[in-house]
Design a protein around this nucleic acid. Structure first.
Lengths: 335, 335
DNA sequence: TTGAAAGCGATACCAA
DNA sequence: TTGGTATCGCTTTCAA
């Protein structure tokens, strides 16, 4: 068994109360001499305070729970990096949960986290269903959304403005001289990352009076590489005159790149492509991908900071719109 | 405050002992009738058992700690996926730690995990220094290494045989008719992923009597995309007659691909490239990358299973060498 | 400056 | 089938 505070007390010939005071450097309450004696005992026994017991009495576990739809995703990893970073800096730990976008699993996790008495919840990259919100509410701990938001439920969120970012992507293409522009999008039924990006894209076309030149939005189910390949093929067969493409994720963009390569259409000479996210693969693509960057790590950090602030002050925080920016690489050509 | 077992007991007009029995479905000890009454009370109050209190008395926290050098790495994410998967299936949680390969941070984390009384440790993708081992030993919980190993310390590990896998990569190239083969490696000082891969590569060349045809191993500090680009350039300038390259990681291989593209040398027509890992980018590369696959998710799963087995049986487990296999895509040409 | 003791929310033993 | 109670390892009054 691990030594307990009792063992330390015995070893140092003091009461456990005194040991506790020294452990927590409670303002005074002991002499320098006993402090040294106790510390010697601690070292000698290799004593480590039991955080579980502390948690029970303080009602503080110093840990938060984070829910992701896919922990192996490239966007996820970057968010997690940022989250873990500030969480650790603030002396807390993070429990990761992989929901696989399944309602049951998500609810299970929430129940688990609740029993484990985590002090807060970070919910990432997915639609917040009513049941999730209710479960979180029932936990009576603060929660913040990352890379997602909820119209209906008043949880603070940290994200980029998808509509604005997409508008920027389309505008960028237009300003580079492109007039016939297509989009590879996620599902318009996806209210978080699907529809808003489509709307932003179309708003730009409208503002530049470039709508009505034929079909321009090609929607897949998701945002994967395969989705990108497939939709790009479709785009080429249904609207061959398109000179520039906005893909709603970098993975899709890379899929489009591959698809183009196979069809022997050159990027960016025959077709320009701009992505969305700025994950690692975008620099590694051939050619390196111009993309709308989300500051993913910072988003993770900010979300964690927000959560801890709420934890500390008790007052719930505001939403944060993080800045997007266009990272110019080599996949878009000026016309 | 959350309702406690006391509240439930009061509400159902029974003792807390009875509530506890029902919660844990302890064999009998209560009638069907009281059971229903208690469950009704639980539902009504929205009672959730406090895992912290349980942990204190059982000395079981149902959580493990996992240490990674970089949680945002692509290999890491896959390992984590596997780990999280079985950990959750077995009713436990995982606390992720990002050590940044720093000794101090690692030791800090170990101390933290120890105080939190995690039931086990998974240590991934990095050299196990003596101090780490000692800290883990002091925790008196089982630990297993993933994608790394230790000669010196008797911790079970789960990994691919790097030497064999590299031997296979080189052999594959040779059997495709290549005679002048180069390698882009990590540091030979890296005893885990550096040297063994170099040795496996050279062993294959030796067995096929292909050594002594000039310089063939180009070692970088790490395994990154940039390392791959740089070393490939060096390789081309110092050994232009090389027709096939083995890169010690997929990221390096993709860097080589990019570098080749820039130099206008075609893959696989002018030069063949084989990678190592089989992470997602290898399918997305242009051309899709032939590579030596490590079963990363399975490795994570296996490591977690091993850990929990040790936890259950108490007897420490054996090492597991996971099978590597060559995934043929389009970056290697038969000569 | 120090110690005794109550209590955090459960589990499990011993009686009834 | 039930309930009372000691206990897990710690923090925190309250007295001394």
């Amino acid at each position: 068994m691990n030594p307990t505070i009792k063992d330390v007390a015995k070893q140092a010939n003091v009461s456990i109360a005194t040991v506790s005071r020294i452990l927590n450097s409670t303002s005074a309450g002991y002499s320098e001499k006993t402090k040294e004696r106790v510390q010697a005992a601690i070292k000698e026994l290799g004593y480590k305070p039991n955080a579980v017991a502390r948690g029970l009495i303080n009602n503080k576990t110093q840990t938060i729970g984070v829910l992701f739809p896919d922990v192996s995703g490239m966007v996820t990893s970057e968010l997690l990096y940022g989250i873990e970073n500030v969480t650790h800096r603030l002396g807390h730990s993070v429990i990761v949960c992989n929901t696989s976008s399944q309602g049951k699993k998500t609810l299970d996790y929430l129940q688990l986290l609740s029993e484990k008495r985590v002090e807060g919840i970070l919910f990432a990259s997915e639609v917040l269903k009513d049941e999730y919100y209710e479960a979180i509410e029932a936990m009576k701990v603060p929660a913040v959304l990352v890379s997602t938001k909820s119209q209906k439920h008043p949880l603070p969120y940290v994200k980029v403005d998808d509509r604005d970012a997409s508008y920027a992507a389309a505008s960028y293409l237009i300003e580079k001289g492109h007039r016939r522009i297509g989009m590879l999008s996620g599902s318009p039924k996806d209210i978080i990352a699907g529809l808003p990006r489509i709307e932003g894209f179309q708003a730009a076309l409208r503002d530049y009076e470039l709508l009505d030149q034929g079909p321009s939005v090609f929607s897949a189910e998701g945002f994967s590489y395969e989705d990108g390949m497939e939709m790009f093929k479709k785009l080429r067969s249904e609207a061959e005159d398109i000179t520039a493409v906005f893909a709603a994720s970098d993975e899709m963009a890379v899929g489009a790149l591959a698809s183009a390569y196979k069809m022997n259409v050159k990027t960016p000479d025959d077709i320009s492509i701009i992505g969305y996210d700025n994950i690692k693969i975008s620099e590694m693509a051939i050619p390196p991908l111009t993309t709308v960057a989300q500051p993913l790590r910072e988003m993770g950090e900010k979300a964690a900071e927000l959560l801890f602030e709420t934890l500390k002050t008790g007052e719930s925080s505001q939403n944060i719109i993080m800045p997007h920016r266009i990272v110019e690489r080599e996949s878009v050509k000026e016309l």
